[in-house]
Design a protein around this nucleic acid. Structure first.
Lengths: 220, 220
DNA sequence: CGAATAGTGTCTATAAGACACTATATA
DNA sequence: TATATAGTGTCTTATAGACACTATTCG
């Protein structure tokens, strides 16, 4: 028994750190539905070339944003008869993070518009709702993982990392307790000899031991 | 621009507590593909009647299992060209919990087969993998929510609840610390006057203040 | 040297684990 | 009253917060 098939798309919440805030990358839709409206980068799943919806999301990120092999995780699937005027549709939503040291090239080579993620509204389809769900997820993951480190560049100081956690958690963290926890968690290693520039004592630079997300037993 | 549309289905990991273990409900597939093979209850999304994939999952639970309005949350979407021999498909997976006091009626009225969830293997499609993802999610949610209480009946003792947490966490919990935490979390209320039967001092019965999942700030 | 930020040491507060102790039902 | 499980009190231990103190660089 077969049934009429719904539309299946992927959409990606692309986030980066810039100007001290979490920024959302959107594309202006060139055609209907929602022509001229900002929307999440996304597209139809192509059954002839995509191995799964994640591959479809990575294809979209590569083709539309020039972003290769980013951190990209499935968020949830949003569906219904009215979210897309073309008909009953389901969109598998992903969220991707652009590291600080790749943001310049992404900005230079694509039509992506960047705006503070917290102010995202008026997006096409139900994309505002998808962004909100992504922000909630990222807030939660920040409490028990190294996710904020994925927004920073190759190397960073502990002050950089703490500021990133504080930004995503929207609350200040105790500096000495933060250092203690980061040391205990052991997901960073010092970049030997490297130091940061400033008018005062330079800070030690660190990098992640792995390019993967580190999960903690307890909250940060 | 339109593309060939993939198959879109929903599948539900149905779990209940029985005989001191977490049990998975499966249905034997009546027809190809995978005829005669145990599979998760599921089905095609029907664009003419389902308001979204969650409604499709609830329809499946109602029609195939006689389970009305259970706790049912989206797990993830599994997709690809080979997971279903009929073609490129995506399945939005959900997990649902059957409370202990509704298990008997579910068992009586449906063809569901129950087996320990931890031993699930040889299921149709990629359903074994979906079950594993659901068990991982439930394990995680048990550490910071009242999820185990949703597997128990209307009222239960603190010993019942602790056993349920211990079962899902696969580790013993300190009894007095557990009581302290449950009291602090304040998601239970005593059922007045009610007591449990046993050969020794009866225990106070409790029920959840809300039928919703309570989320904790810290780990249990 | 003074300013500024980096990093450490340590005291206090809070929550978890251990476990002895009391409470209350039935046989 | 003996026993079995329910439930409490409290000491110890681990971790987080507060904050003063030392360290290091530059102008």
């Amino acid at each position: 028994m077969e049934y009429p098939r719904p539309i299946l798309t992927v959409d990606v919440v692309v986030l980066a750190l810039d100007e001290g805030a979490l920024q959302l990358g959107t594309l202006t839709r060139p055609e209907d539905p929602f022509a001229g409206c900002p929307a999440l980068p996304g597209g139809f799943v192509r059954v002839d070339e995509d191995q799964n919806t994640r591959a479809a999301a990575l294809r979209v990120l590569h083709d539309k944003i020039g972003l290769v092999d980013p951190f990209c995780q499935q968020l949830a699937t949003f569906s219904g008869p009215t979210r897309d005027p073309r008909g009953w549709s389901a969109s598998v939503a992903y969220y991707a993070l652009v590291p600080a040291d790749r943001l310049a090239e992404v900005k230079a080579h694509t039509r992506l518009t960047w705006n503070p993620a917290a102010e995202a509204q008026g997006l096409a389809f139900d994309h505002s709702q998808i962004v909100q769900a992504a922000l909630d997820r990222i807030h939660t993951q920040t409490t028990y993982s190294s996710l904020p480190a994925l927004l920073l560049g190759q190397s960073f100081t502990l002050a950089d990392l703490r500021h990133c956690y504080e930004l995503l958690l929207r609350q200040p963290l105790n500096d000495s307790a933060f250092r203690r926890k980061i040391a205990d968690l052991d997901f960073l290693e010092p970049v030997p000899g490297a130091q940061s520039r400033s008018t005062a004592r330079p800070a030690q630079l660190y990098r992640q031991r792995s390019d993967k997300l580190a999960l903690f037993d307890r909250t940060i």
